[in-house]
């Protein structure tokens, strides 16, 4: 188990529990009573810490190395998943995965950015930073879903679209812009879930839907707190402050009406109980698709346009 800096009290308790267990084996004493007590203490520490997370701590939770990624949710929530590759133009982008699957027997199209689970995989997945090919693969498969009237589910988890030389040559900006335009117009239900990091245009590039939903401990805004700090404060040292100022948490975002729903995470974050997280999310997806299926394609499209058109704050004098 890996612990974040603010989870120190929990980590300490776990260390004590394992020491107790060692002792009990060595000295053949029954310590189950004390272990039970300490486990209660862990629960309490978790509740205390997780009910008062600062915005920056939530950013840390969203990046926890043990946090479930897109393919985990696909495996747990859906059946008969067949991964589909390639944008049919340049190549296959490993930072964006997609495929056909079934949700309780109903065919759907699923896709999302994928991060790696170890150093080698992280490189292979380009840290979840898609190139234009990733966005174009996503769009190709959304159109396939639309053609056969299958709902679309996207999982968003990216530190941003990749800022590379080839990405620019092949039109990163055009690829994202095109997706925004086309996603607004999709005839089928589109549900977008932010499962980790929702950074800027790279997130929005698969993030225009009838429902845009955040898991509790995720963040979604225009720039990462680190980059914001470096640009506005001209130093990397103000990331905590930037995270606060950006109001990037699920609570803020739903308060602003910029996301539709927030799905609660298990105590201690999605990584503390991934199975439970997947179960909760599955229920949410089923409910949402059932709700959206009652609308006509035109109602869904107009609903999307109206929803995004209302976003913004200004005075009219």
């Amino acid at each position: 188990m890996q612990f974040l800096d603010f989870e120190k009290p929990i980590e300490d308790l776990y260390t004590q529990i394992s020491k107790l267990k060692e002792l009990s084996v060595k000295n053949q004493v029954d310590v189950s009573g004390s272990i039970k007590e300490m486990e209660t203490a862990v629960e309490k520490a978790r509740t205390d810490i997780y009910s008062n997370l600062t915005p920056w701590q939530r950013v840390q939770v969203s990046r926890h190395p043990e946090r479930p990624y897109t393919l985990y949710y696909i495996e747990k929530i859906f059946t008969n998943f067949t991964e589909l590759y390639g944008d049919r133009q340049v190549k296959d982008d490993k930072a964006m995965v997609a495929g056909m699957a079934e949700l309780n027997g109903h065919p759907v199209m699923v896709m999302g950015q994928q991060k790696g689970i170890n150093t080698k995989m992280r490189q292979m997945r380009n840290f979840g930073m898609a190139n234009p090919e990733g966005y174009r693969k996503a769009l190709r498969l959304m159109k396939l879903a639309e053609k056969f009237n299958r709902p679309i589910i996207t999982f968003i988890d990216t530190p941003g679209a990749f800022p590379g030389l080839e990405a620019e040559e092949r039109g990163q900006a055009e690829a994202i812009a095109r997706n925004l335009f086309e996603m607004v117009n999709m005839k089928v239900p589109v549900i977008c879930i932010i499962i980790g990091e929702g950074a800027s245009g790279g997130a929005l590039g698969i993030g225009v839907g009838d429902k845009v939903t955040m898991l509790e401990n995720t963040w979604y805004t225009v720039i990462s707190p680190e980059s914001c700090s470096s640009i506005l404060w001209r130093s990397w040292n103000f990331k905590e402050k930037a995270a606060e100022q950006l109001k990037l948490t699920s609570i803020d975002m739903s308060g602003f009406g910029l996301v539709d729903d927030v799905v609660p995470e298990p105590l201690g974050g999605a990584h503390a109980n991934p199975e439970l997280m997947a179960e909760t999310l599955k229920e949410y997806l089923i409910e949402s698709i059932n709700e959206l299926s009652k609308l006509t394609p035109d109602e869904r499209i107009n609903g999307r346009i109206e929803k995004f058109s209302k976003m913004g704050f200004f005075d009219e004098v």
Binding site: A177, L180, F181, V184, N185, S200, G201, L204, G207, V208, Y220, T221, V222, I223, C228, I231, L232, Q245, L246, K247, L248, M253, F256, L258, I301, R304, I305, F308, S309, M311, G312, F313
Partner: peptide, 22 residues
């Protein structure tokens, strides 16, 4: 995007694209 408007500025991308479909 204007960082000082945070996610609101990000959403102007979706908003303008949505209106362009009209």
């Amino acid at each position: 995007a204007r960082m000082m408007e945070s996610a609101f500025s990000l959403m102007q991308m979706a908003k303008t694209a949505a209106k362009l479909t009209r």
